[in-house]
Simulated assay, not measured.
Amino acid sequence: MLDHDLLSAIQRNDLHWLEANASQMSADWRKFIHSKSGDTALHVAASAGCTQVLGWLLSQGCDRCLEQQNADGKRPLHCAVQASHLPIVKILLDHGATIDPLKRADWTPLMLACTKRNLQVIRHLIENGANLRLENKDGWTSFHLACREGDKEIVNYLLDVDGSVWNNVTKNGRTPLHTAAMHGKEGVIRILLSRGSYSTDEVDACGNTPLLEALRMGHRNIAELLIMEHNASVYTKDKTGRMGIHVAAEAGQGEMVKFLLESHGVDVNLLSETGEL
């Protein structure tokens, strides 16, 4: 059990307390586990960004916890990355932490780093061998996640590392372009259109195109960009036979409906394949 005094000392980076009480601690740090989170002392120090304490723990045999998983399947490296603590990431990797361990749902540290939009951490992981092509259980790669978050510098960097990483689909057929369109990331879409080679009106498993996603979510700027620069069609149908105007209307996106009617001449009485207006 990771007792309160030890946990508190680690969290406040109190190396003096740890050194003074070291004789009372077991040599096997693996037995010091937080009762709820399953965190080891190394997890706690990594999350809190306590470099001095982390170094001391590793020197005292806590390196045996480098690959230990907590209740969420995270290892200390996952915790350091999620908290964007680059010095901690460097220390853990220098001590031999596995670069691409999987947490629950098959998330690697690089995937977590891409959700935190920390280019320095991402760069360090990749320079130490992190695999940009690994997928989680849903088929999402680190690049998909970076496109969702919308940091243009990171997206460009990942494309510099692997120029074909844009060419990937999730288990339900979604491309990074679908993801960026759904989340309204105009800058990322411009990068994807200029550096990738996406087919116009590429559909996912449900027949949704990036344009349909933009219309559903009310991103007029994205819809206009896809229509004008990617030749996306306002008449492409999803698997239920609905076109953009039906998708926008169903989602309650009145401005998108108005945009299609006034800017692109869509017939307000246009029927879907099921006969819906």
Rank of each mutant, 00 (worst) to 15 (best):
N13T: 07
S23R: 13
R30V: 04
K36P: 01
A41T: 11
L42Y: 09
A45V: 09
A46F: 07
S47Q: 13
C50H: 04
V53P: 00
W56K: 06
L57E: 03
L58W: 09
S59K: 10
Q60G: 00
C62G: 01
R64E: 12
E67H: 10
R75T: 14
H85P: 03
L93P: 08
G96H: 08
I99C: 08
D106I: 02
D106V: 03
W107A: 07
K116L: 07
K116E: 14
K116A: 13
R123G: 01
R123M: 09
L132P: 00
E135M: 13
D138I: 09
W140A: 04
F143K: 00
C147N: 08
N156R: 15
L158T: 00
S164F: 10
W166E: 04
W166C: 02
T175I: 05
L177A: 06
A180Q: 04
A180E: 02
G184F: 07
K185W: 05
V188G: 05
I191P: 03
I191V: 14
S194K: 13
S194I: 01
S197I: 01
E202N: 01
D204R: 00
C206A: 12
L211Y: 01
A214I: 03
A214V: 07
R220H: 10
N221Q: 14
I222V: 15
A223T: 05
A223C: 08
E224A: 11
E224S: 11
L225D: 02
L226W: 00
H230G: 06
A232S: 13
S233W: 02
D238K: 04
R242I: 00
A251C: 14
V266H: 08
N269E: 15
L271T: 11
T274A: 15
